[in-house]
Amino acid sequence: MQFAIAVFSAPEQASNRRALRFAEAVLAEGHAISRLFFYQAGVHSASSQQVTAQDELDLPRAWHEFVTQHQLDAVVCIAAALRRGQLNQAEAERYNRDGYSVQTPWELSGLGQLHDAAQSADRLICFGGP
């Protein structure tokens, strides 16, 4: 079965951790993930600059390792990311900013990527949200 997974919650919220555990279970059970899509506060999951308390799970790092290890399609909503100061190198240059926090394997792209994922997957599973 093909899953698309959307993460709307920030890394410090329990639903973000549940999203990661669900994604791990999907692959462990032999299913596939067609796309991970990070939206709203979920875009902070792609930040290489977020610092997590030593006694907590570093979810941005865990997501990065998971996506890299499994070579997954991981998309960060560009509008939500820019609004929250999460830029990749190209956007930092475009907006004349000194630094950037979104790096490979993350891709900044539009909300249409979530629509495409929902259309092509057997199931769209969402975590967090308003």
Rank of each mutant, 00 (worst) to 15 (best):
A19P: 13
P60F: 00
A4L: 03
G85V: 00
E91I: 05
R61T: 07
E29C: 13
P60R: 00
G129I: 04
Y100H: 11
A90R: 09
F22W: 11
V26S: 06
Q69M: 07
V43Y: 03
E93V: 14
T68R: 10
R18I: 07
R35G: 05
D73R: 14
R83F: 00
C77V: 02
S109G: 09
Q13N: 05
A62S: 12
Q86K: 08
C77P: 02
A53Y: 03
H31Q: 15
A62D: 11
V26T: 12
S9Y: 01
H44S: 13
H64K: 11
A121I: 02
L124M: 08
Q86C: 04
A19W: 10
V102N: 05
P130H: 14
A23S: 15
Q50P: 02
S9P: 00
V75S: 05
Q69G: 11
A79Y: 03
A19H: 12
S9F: 00
R83T: 02
A46L: 06
A117L: 06
L36C: 10
Q54L: 12
V43I: 08
E12L: 09
A28C: 08
T104R: 03
V51A: 13
D58P: 04
A118F: 05
V26W: 05
G112W: 01
H44E: 09
S45H: 10
V43P: 06
N88D: 12
D58L: 00
Q40C: 03
Q50E: 05
Q13W: 02
A46S: 12
Q50Y: 06
F127T: 12
Q50K: 11
L87T: 03
A14P: 14
A14H: 14
F8I: 00
V51M: 14
G99T: 14
H70G: 10
A62E: 13
V26P: 01
F127K: 13
V75N: 10
F3W: 09
C126T: 14
A81W: 01
F8Q: 14
V51R: 10
L72G: 07
C126M: 11
L36F: 15
H115F: 10
V76T: 05
S34E: 15
